[in-house]
Design a protein around this nucleic acid. Structure first.
Lengths: 221, 221
DNA sequence: GTCTATAAGTCGATAGAC
DNA sequence: GTCTATCGACTTATAGAC
């Protein structure tokens, strides 16, 4: 009954079981089930079966269906963060152009061709009318951290002299997300072709160009 | 069986019936049905009933289910264009800042709070895995024209001196689309608040700033 | 397997304009 | 009469009940 109504996003009591990553196994089973059935039609019983655990075990790791789904989103979107190559301090010390190229490249690498993730995103967007909290979990755990990291970068990097950091973050990240949506999720590659590197370079020129005299420094990578 | 497999986007034989806009009536009924049931579960019979016409009449206006859906998308997304205030020539003669403000404002006005359109977009994204051609129809009829108009502007406006026009178009439009997705479709207003005018101004500063000395011309609107 | 319900798409008849 | 928009009834396919 507590279906997506309260803060199921917050970290839950995760009992420190033995060495095997049973939570991961459950998440894998849940992924299959959510992908196959959508959110509403997904059955906790089938998730338990798919994961090879009992229902009580399932509920000892995740409070409810909503909490399980939130954890799934977190796992997939935090993948962007745990494997990024640069720490915040480094990002501030490198030239802005290099930091942004790094972030854009990693973002696109993490997204391109990831069919399971696309399926999950389709599901979240598709059900965002009926299940607003589902979408909000995605915003909180996926988009917000990314935008905050970018805002911090734009607010504190010495190369950035003008511009609203939060808006810059939205434009940078939003352009990338829109690119992925158009090319991959909505299958627009053939209708609106756009090479990946051309897009990245153009986007970075747009952002960095604000503080650059045309022709002053074109050399990069 | 021709379910979304061929060019159902192209204009169909539209018999020039009497003065009453029966096609519009059918589209309204189709909208209700698609919104209520999604694409796959939508029934042409129920659409006919909702529209108050017989099934053969329905098929005399639209080739098949896919063609009907494509027409629906076209109607909603072309709404963006038919009501825009400026022609291409005007856009090239005004200062770039003003043209972009115009486009951004109209785009956001046309999207903000439009629940039926959001429902349709959720449906398209949600079914884009199972029905790629559905999504491609949206890309062809909705996104492509907008991006082409912007590319033309960025390619030909005298204020634009550097930058890849097609990438600029994607960044400008992509930022706006991502803003709408986050704030409205995914219900992120409270999680990531961002005032509309602040966003528009920041976005335009980013684009126009490429060719502007900071502090030279802040006065606008 | 059989039966029923409901789906997409088609055909011959009807009713009015000229 | 012809022409055209329309509709009731039809065919075929499929998915689920039993």
């Amino acid at each position: 009954m507590s279906d997506l109504t309260d803060g199921s996003d917050k970290p839950q009591k995760l009992p420190k079981h033995k060495e095997v990553d049973k939570a991961g196994v459950i998440l894998t089973g849940a992924m299959q089930e959510f992908i196959k059935c959508g959110y509403a039609a997904a059955s906790m019983d089938r998730i338990a079966v798919a994961a090879g655990v009992s229902k009580p075990t399932l509920y000892s790791y995740f409070r409810d269906k909503a909490g399980l789904f939130a954890a799934l989103i977190q796992q997939m979107t935090q993948g962007d963060r745990k494997s990024r190559l640069l720490e915040n301090d480094q990002l501030l010390q490198l030239p802005l152009r290099d930091s942004l190229k790094q972030i854009a490249t990693v973002s696109l690498d993490k997204l391109s061709g990831k069919q399971p993730l696309f399926t999950l995103i389709r599901l979240i967007v598709g059900e965002s009318g009926r299940f607003p909290a589902l979408a909000q979990t995605f915003v909180r755990n996926g988009e917000k951290p990314m935008l905050e990291e970018l805002s911090y970068l734009f607010a504190n990097h010495p190369d950035v002299k003008v511009g609203d950091p939060e808006v810059l973050a939205r434009c940078f990240h939003g352009s990338i997300v829109h690119y992925i949506i158009l090319q991959e999720i909505l299958h627009g590659r053939d209708i609106l072709p756009m090479e990946r590197d051309r897009f990245i370079n153009g986007l970075i020129d747009l952002i960095v160009g604000s503080d650059r005299v045309p022709g002053a420094d074109m050399g990069n990578g």
